[in-house]
């Protein structure tokens, strides 16, 4: 940690700079255990393949699921998992927040003249998380190749926007669910329902969840905007729920709203934080 103190002046570090600095430190720490790092990276790679195998097993029995063919579902899987993998790498340090609060280490975070969010997001950053990227990238490549898509500039822009907005939505979700730890320190596992739960739900066509739940996942917990709505446009697939056309392009708005909520929630939690210290 010695080289973090070489800043010549004592102005507080800008959040993103602090984040990158902390990420570098944590990566160096993680690479001290080389064999373990290698094995955990392989495990991450393997874990993301499991859902892919499950999808392939399902499609070995039937031609469509919820009205979607295998390449279409793999496109959904690829975009979802790619967005989630990047958000996981960037923001899943939030998962350690409950332990930090319980042990009183969060007090130290607040004392430092660096953004508390940057410190928490970067916590325990490890390169193993990049292991999650391989399967989605390869799958997405295959799905795009196999799909009879007529690419236009608009479609390409929406496809790239899908991953970018999805990643922002997931990051906002990480921060929002991290706030659960402030309210109930041992209810942290509830957060998994929202983070990993939405990851698992959005890799399938939303139509399999039926109309009531499908609408809830669009307007209450807006994970439909991670990949489902924009992908309907890219795939040229009519919306099974019959929702208006403009929602296909509403992902940036949804991402902005959820990020705003996450920022507000985080500030409120920091303001009301009471140390667990004895």
């Amino acid at each position: 940690m010695a080289d973090t103190t070489t800043e010549p002046d004592d102005r507080p570090l800008w959040g993103p700079t602090a984040y990158l600095l902390l990420v570098r430190i944590w990566m160096r720490a993680a690479s001290q255990y080389r064999v373990s790092l290698l094995l955990t990276t392989v495990a991450q790679l393997f874990t993301t393949c499991l859902d892919l195998i499950a999808i392939l097993v399902i499609y070995s029995h039937v031609r469509t699921i919820g009205g979607f063919t295998l390449p279409e579902t793999l496109y959904l899987y690829g975009t979802t998992r790619l967005a989630f993998a990047v958000s996981d790498a960037l923001a899943s340090g939030v998962e350690n927040l409950a332990t930090m609060i319980r042990l009183g280490n969060f007090d130290l975070v607040l004392i430092r003249p660096v953004s508390s969010l940057a410190q928490v997001l970067a916590d325990q950053f490890t390169p193993k998380r990049f292991g999650k990227l391989a399967a989605p990238v390869l799958t997405l490549g295959w799905a795009i190749d196999a799909l009879p898509l007529h690419w236009t500039a608009a479609k390409a822009a929406v496809a790239i926007g899908t991953v970018v907005c999805g990643l922002v939505l997931y990051c906002a979700l990480w921060v929002l669910t991290g706030c659960i730890s402030f309210i109930a320190v041992d209810a942290q596992e509830v957060a998994n329902s929202f983070t990993y739960g939405s990851e698992n739900a959005t890799e399938y066509p939303l139509s399999i969840f039926g109309r009531p739940l499908g609408l809830a996942l669009t307007f209450v917990l807006p994970v439909a905007f991670v990949t489902w709505q924009p992908s309907l446009y890219v795939l040229g697939h009519p919306d099974p729920f019959g929702l208006p056309e403009f929602l296909r392009f509403a992902s940036p708005a949804a991402a902005a709203v959820l990020s705003g909520l996450a920022a507000l929630a985080w500030r409120a939690c920091i303001r009301h934080y009471r140390s667990t210290g004895s």
Partner: peptide, 24 residues
Amino acid sequence: SSAAAGAFTNTVFGCIRAFVLMAL
């Protein structure tokens, strides 16, 4: 309460898996 949080998450995932299998 930790176990309750876990049971909640198990239930959510049970629903997701059930919907996927039902579609099949």
